[in-house]
Design a protein around this nucleic acid. Sequence first.
RNA 1: GGUCCCGUCGUCCAGAGGCCUAGGACGCCGGCCUUUCAAGCCGGAAACGCCGGUUCGAAUCCGGUCGGGACUGCCA
Length: 467
Amino acid sequence: MAPSPTGTLHVGTARAALFNWLVARHSQGTFIVRIDDTDRERSTPEFEEEILGSLRWLGLDWDEGVGVGGPHGTYRQSDRLERYRQVAEELVAAGLAYHDNREPDVLEDLRRRAQKEGKHPGHYIRRPEEPATSGPIRLSVPEDAPVVFEDMVRGTVTFEPQDIDDFVILRSDGTPTYHLASTVDDVDYEISHVARGEDLLPSTPKHILLTRALGASEPVYAHLPLLFGSDGKKLSKRHGATALSEYRDQGYLPEAVFNYLAILGWSPDGETTVFSREEAVAAFDLNDVNKSPAVFDPEKLAWMNGEYVRALEAAKFSRMARPFVEAACGRALSDDEWMRFEEIAHLVQERTRLLPEAGEQVIFLFEDVDEYDEKSWAKVMTKEGVADVLDAGLAVLTGLEHWNTEAIESALRSLPERLEIGAGKVFQPLRISVTGSSVSPPLFESLAALGRIPTLARIERARGLLG
RNA sequence: GGUCCCGUCGUCCAGAGGCCUAGGACGCCGGCCUUUCAAGCCGGAAACGCCGGUUCGAAUCCGGUCGGGACUGCCA
């Protein structure tokens, strides 16, 4: 795994990392995280931290690389610039690469010519007659044989030499291009498997040629299908959240995101959708990964998150929900208030897919209800007899000796029969009066958690509005 | 334009010549449960891009076609 710290960790990159991790864990291999920061302009330490943090959050621990060390230094390309420059020069000395001092517009002409003739630029971007001693260094692409390789997800992939141009490996400022740096790293770090996005498939013959020029043999490649947005285009900002950290901040559970990402392009058997990390590790095989791109569906992720939220231990759910509840209320809650939440937390948990939803469900516990959901009011509170229901409710609740779920339930349960109306006709007006909406956690528990005084006050208030 | 990759329900994933009247999941629709909403349960609509070929038999193999995508930089 070799992210570039030029931005936050993208979900597509996270998925590639996830697959790398699965391969390593499945085969008891070594999962390595290195940093591709040759783009000094855009790379920052902050992004690097963000990316590593996101990886850890997802649960992708690495055995070797940035932060944890290993036999190959810092695993940061910016610390190896000299190594890359040396390799490039050795290749020049060996006659396998050359300096190219042609002007950009000369090269541009060659490309245009190729395009005009319906050919690949590789036909013309070649070593010039007169070798230069300055300028960027290009690799000399051997023109005698096609580059063929077995991709673990694509199968056999073939590139003709004319379709590969003599690409730049060392820029004129002496810094390596991505191709050089990443290939040298693969060789130096003895990488056995490279699983990366399909967008790098066209670069792979270059990497293979470079690897061979270095006298090494290439790793096994696996090019993962890309992630698309709902419009079938490469996933980007306009499709919603693309940074993994946004999901963390919005209260998604890492296990759920892990599971969802894993199922994009792979499945253990075609029947199972929800599975643990361990099950994924046990079943994973790069050969089983799909070839076709996958559309990232936030709806299914939300559902999946709900599966994991419901499976959470009660205490853990409360702990995780707290910041979202407080955010919904706009203030921190006292321990006393928090105990009231915990009374109905298990009921909230069942109704939560995304943690922020937990907050919305319990605002009524902590904030007074001074306006009501318009639709709910219109549908329920304007009906005949609602005032009588509230009066009756008020009467039985006021007389309660103990204020708890059981007492409230037994008091209210008798009302429908006594008033000779349906249960819903009794409970919905009370629900709206107390919570402000016709949708809420179960009524008796809600009233119990809210407390006697506020409950009665709210019913009275709603009763007053009915005139 | 060129090179390469891809093509099963709206979406994700099964299917590696007969087990397919194509299976599972999300979403959607209907029902049950129920004081609401969820959850759960039951049921439903929904796909092999198209055309040829190989074969007794093709979603599965081959060719073509159409469609989509990636790449095409001294970015990664």
